[in-house]
Computed example of a mutant assay.
Amino acid sequence: MLPVAGRSAVTGVERRTTVVRLEAGPVEYRLEQRGEAAVVVFHGGHMRAGLALGEEVFAEAGYTLLVPSRPGYGRTPLSTGTTVSGFADATRELCDHLGISKIAAVVGISGGGPTAVTMAARHPDLVARLILQSAVGWLTWPDRRTRLAAHAMFAAATERATWAAVRALMRLAPDAGLRMLLCDLSTRPVRDVMTVLSTEDRATLIALFSHMRSGSGFLNDLRPSPDVTADVGQPTVVIATPRDGAVPFAHAQSLTTAIRRAELVGSQADSHFIWLGPDWPAIAEEIRDFLNGPVKSTGR
């Protein structure tokens, strides 16, 4: 189980990652060591361990960050824990390998939501809290039109060309590229979403979209998984905006209802990217308070 170090191809944007060969298979991960307490982040669709999104709240609070690439993303193959339960167990093995014996919180972002929930359900002795951000739940997702488009754009024969076209658009006509991509990420008219974006927000999104890849991971995310929300006993915060065009707000409501110790925190963000909302500083403060709060027995 020796680690194989590797630097991401894009310097200055992507962060250093490592691949370790576990019994479950190879797993790419990023470990940012800080304090004794650790937070595990399961990234969303089209992301990977080398791309950071919304992690500052944990880093600034002094938490060690462990971010694995989910199956099919980055350098984690689909053969490593193809199912969400399988990869939750692989992440447990990764934590054991790294000497992480307690996780202050597991964070599930967007398509990483089911893996985070499953990790909490399957390993309550390891996971103290659960945080879900713009997370997919167990309602039907995505809709038929989006599913058909995903199979056309992110299949093995087309995925590379799709993202090459996005990168070219971001380089040559970034405003047009942002309008095209944000159109499906907000329920608001895209012109209104663009109007309120700051220069910094635009730069953040352009950089993010320019380095995304789907690999075989996004289509794998569309596979159904067992609903284990009833098995989650940890304190949970579900953060979402009603203006999310990618993951309907109903997912957040459903997760909050199904997880018995969950609290819903509504965001004022105009799109799926809650970290760009005007109230994110206040939400970040709620997250810090949540992480510092007492953890009672899960009752399991």
Rank of each mutant, 00 (worst) to 15 (best):
I239Q: 09
C183A: 10
F209S: 06
V232C: 09
V193F: 02
D227Q: 14
M194C: 07
R191F: 10
L172D: 08
P174G: 03
V117Y: 05
L182H: 00
M153H: 14
R202N: 03
L197F: 13
A155G: 15
L181Q: 15
S198D: 11
G113M: 09
V190S: 07
Q133N: 15
S110E: 05
M212E: 15
A156F: 02
L132F: 14
A149S: 12
W163H: 10
F218K: 12
P189D: 04
L169I: 03
R191T: 12
M212R: 13
S186E: 06
D184A: 15
L208I: 11
F154P: 02
S216G: 07
A120S: 12
T158A: 11
R179S: 06
P124L: 14
T236S: 07
V232D: 03
P174D: 00
L132V: 12
V166D: 01
R202M: 03
L132K: 05
R167W: 01
G108V: 05
S225P: 06
E159D: 10
L132M: 09
L130A: 04
V127T: 09
M180R: 14
V136P: 03
G217K: 01
R160E: 05
Q133A: 12
C183W: 12
R122L: 10
D175K: 01
G177E: 02
A155D: 11
D125G: 15
V237S: 02
T146D: 13
A240Y: 04
V232I: 11
A240Q: 13
A164W: 04
P224C: 10
V117N: 05
T158F: 06
D221I: 11
I131C: 02
L182N: 00
P189R: 03
A156E: 01
G112F: 06
I131Y: 00
G217Y: 02
P224F: 13
V238R: 00
W138S: 09
L169P: 00
M212H: 12
D184I: 11
A168R: 15
G217V: 00
R145L: 14
T146S: 14
G108D: 03
S198F: 10
Q234N: 13
P142E: 07
I206H: 03
R202Y: 03
M194F: 02
A230V: 11
A121R: 01
W141M: 12
G137S: 04
A168C: 08
V196E: 01
P224Y: 13
A157W: 08
V237H: 00
M119N: 08
T241I: 11
M119W: 06
